[in-house]
Design a protein around this nucleic acid. Structure first.
Length: 601
DNA sequence: CTTAGGG
DNA sequence: CCCTAAG
């Protein structure tokens, strides 16, 4: 882990702002397959070897980039959107991750960089070979598969425009994209509803572009390219597809990567993570392709095409009341615009989820008050959970994109299509069985994903799979959600390590420095967990083993860790009060710790 | 915003 | 895990 990060290729500069270069990972881009740029993620070992990044590391990058407002999408070669690089329109107040304390090895010389890059070049192909089961090799050719697919679609069907545009819902969308008429404020609203977060960006152009890119996610399984032009959604012909499009009147709607849904809740992840995931996580740049063939895009447009997925937690968590209020605001603020029946009907947002043999595509059609805009939006599919079985999933779909596109259409045709309604909670309860096999993962992802009934109020039953989301009725009658994500062993270890390094109580530090990859763990979470660990560690005694009060605390924390926790706790409890008994510190401090220990005799 | 503590 | 008070 004592390494540096560098992005191979021309994009280094962009990553500096994200703090990625402070990380210990390397994003290399063995292939700029297309747009978005696809990177391989590797780690530099102490001896200079390059090894494929583990899930945790992938998540680390994801975490680093997660909070950035950005345009340029970074996609791992697993097909996962890692995040984006910053650009000049980033809001000024954004926290710069990793900008304060550089890691010791974040300094890297030019020469080193080059050497590393060189090593990457050698190493990437070799890894392709050593992960014998030719999936990786396969993966890089996915783009070409798709390209052929595009070709056939575009060439073959002159009147109908391929699978996407023939979908009923999509064509409905056609006449309703009209971002131009919206004020900044309205754009902000739309933005918020689209991405689930606020934006401070005032640039109207940028907002429109981002929102339109949000739409992109909607059709992100498409292999065709669409353009919003004069408020109409049109499919680009092959020839004109790459012409310059004035962003004020036309917005490109490219197809981008397929978002996988894998909900491998609390899959084991401990010390051996690195060994078990290296092959499993590599699946290839599915769905990433160059829509424009050989014709190069202007840099600006290229950036515009790259999207990031929504990030934060409470994306679709407005309660019904709030939602109504929200709509009310929107409507009132867009009084000029006719309110269509459609808009009110779609108040109950139909959510269509498709789960097909492990590959899940989720969509949401949101209506924005009277604006007449329907903004499809991808649920935040995952809250940064591991993608361990990507490979396994992909295995069943070597044909990748084309297949998925078909599936999506199918899903849209069948309106309230009910997939297996396996309770998410049930699935999640199987959490952290430390040694699950990929097969099990597949099975699990298959059975989850309840889909909401059309016309039903979405509110409470939509769970984004990003954790065990349980709705809880509060005393005041309100409802709130309780996310639960069991702590994995590796998380606990990181926490312990962080506490030992930075001290208990400096949670934000620990969060920033040791938990950058776990965006879902807040500093408060860390604090709480530490509190629990303390409790656990002090309630634990060597004789207690096994005959313990509780059966299986879900995740039995190994004794060594508990001991370490206790050790740290004792250390910290005696360090703070140096005021008195400085010399007898060991005696009085140490003793008092023991005495205050609950259950210790 | 961060931390600590109660629930 | 959530909420809130306190710096």
């Amino acid at each position: 882990m004592e390494t540096v990060v560098k992005v191979e290729g021309g994009d280094e500069g962009k990553f500096e702002e994200t703090g990625l270069e402070k990380s210990n990972l390397i994003l290399s881009s063995p292939k700029h397959v297309a747009d978005p740029v696809v990177y391989k993620l590797v780690r530099v070992e102490g001896d200079g070897r390059l090894v494929p990044a583990t899930d945790d590391e992938l998540m680390e990058v994801e975490g680093l980039l997660e909070n950035e407002k950005c345009e340029t999408q970074i996609v791992a070669d697993t097909g996962h959107v890692l995040g984006c690089t910053s650009n000049e329109v980033s809001s000024p107040g954004m926290p710069q991750l990793g900008s304060s304390e550089g890691l010791s090895h974040s300094e890297i010389t030019e020469a080193d960089t080059e050497k590393l890059s060189a090593r990457i070049e050698e190493m990437v192909p070799s890894r392709t070979q050593c992960s014998s089961d030719n999936h990786v090799t396969q993966s890089w050719s996915v783009g070409e598969h798709s390209k052929r697919l595009v070709g056939s679609i575009e060439g073959g069907s002159s009147s109908s425009v391929g699978c996407i545009s023939s979908k009923p819902d999509f064509s409905k969308l056609k006449d309703e994209i009209c971002l131009d008429n919206l004020s900044i404020k309205e754009l902000h609203e739309v933005f918020k509803a689209t991405f689930g977060r606020d934006t401070t960006v005032k640039d109207k152009q940028w907002l429109k572009r981002r929102i339109a890119m949000g739409l992109t996610n909607f059709c992100d399984v498409s292999t065709a390219t669409f353009v919003i032009k004069d408020n109409k959604l049109v499919k680009k012909g092959k020839e004109d597809s790459c012409n310059n499009v004035n962003l004020s009147t036309g917005i490109e709607l490219p197809a981008v990567g397929v978002e996988y849904h894998e909900d491998l809740l609390n899959s084991h992840s401990h010390q051996i993570d690195e060994h078990q995931t290296t092959s499993g996580m590599r699946s290839g740049n599915n769905g990433v392709e160059d829509n424009c063939g050989s014709e190069p895009l202007a840099a600006d447009q290229r950036a515009a095409k790259r999207v990031r997925r929504p990030t934060k937690r409470y994306i679709e968590e407005l309660s019904e009341a709030e939602y109504k209020e929200y709509r009310g605001r929107l409507i009132s603020s867009t009084k000029n615009i006719e309110i269509r029946p459609l808009a009110s009907k779609s108040h109950a947002r139909p959510a269509r989820n498709v789960s097909l043999e492990g590959r899940t595509v989720m969509m949401r059609l949101d209506s924005f008050g009277g604006s007449g805009i329907q903004v499809p939006c991808v649920y935040r599919v995952r809250r940064s959970q591991p993608r361990k079985n990507v490979m396994a999933l992909l295995k069943f779909h070597p044909s990748g994109i084309g297949r998925t596109a078909t599936l999506v259409r199918k899903c849209l045709d069948v309106h309230g299509s009910q997939m297996d309604n396996g309770s998410v909670n049930k699935v999640l309860k199987t959490k952290s069985a430390p040694e699950q096999t990929p097969q099990q993962y597949v099975a699990e992802s298959k059975k989850e994903r309840p889909s909401a009934e059309l016309g039903q109020n979405m509110g409470l039953k939509q769970d984004t799979s990003d954790g065990n989301v349980v709705t809880v009725r509060t005393a005041k009658g309100g409802i709130r959600r309780k996310h639960h994500r069991a702590w994995t062993l590796s998380e606990v270890m990181k926490l312990v390590e962080g506490v030992s390094k930075y001290g208990a109580g400096r949670w934000s530090e620990i969060k920033r420095l040791a938990f950058a990859s776990y965006s879902y763990r807040t500093s408060v979470d860390l604090k709480d967990k530490w509190r629990n660990l303390l409790k656990a560690s002090f309630a634990w005694t060597p004789v207690d083993k096994g005959v313990n009060s509780r059966k299986h605390p879900a995740m039995p924390i190994p004794a060594p860790i508990l001991l370490r926790v206790r050790e740290l706790a004792e250390m910290h409890s005696q360090v703070p009060p140096p005021s008195h008994c400085a010399s007898k510190q060991a005696a009085c401090g140490g003793r008092s710790v023991y005495e205050t220990r609950p259950g210790y005799s």
